[in-house]
Amino acid sequence: MASGVKPRIKVPSSASAGETIIIKTLISHKMESGQRKDKDGKPIPRSIINRFTCEFNGQSVIDITMEPAISTNPYIQFEATVPEAGEFVFKWFDDDGSVYEESKTISVG
């Protein structure tokens, strides 16, 4: 696992049924592109988050394949529909095989 990885997510705590909400996510990750070289001119190996997914109660909201051209600390903003109360599950897939998972519950009122 890469060090210092910390996901941050902004989801409203409640919404009305069928409402559209904006979700903002940011994960601290160095996203080493594999293009850079260190002081000795040796290439620094690639280490990025290559996939991000968001699901709500098991149904997909968004699934993004990411390449080295995504900036350090990947920020993603998108819109989701909330049909009922439930839980958003966010997953980031690292090149090294680790998966960072975070969830947010939302109530419908």
């Binding site: 997909s60 968004i62 990411m66 998108f78």
Partner: peptide
């Protein structure tokens, strides 16, 4: 750069990235 796949619960096929 990226490929974004929208699921059934995506409210609109839009996204912002850096």
């Amino acid at each position: 750069v990226a490929t974004i796949n929208f699921g059934p619960l995506a409210a609109s096929p839009s996204a912002a990235l850096r």
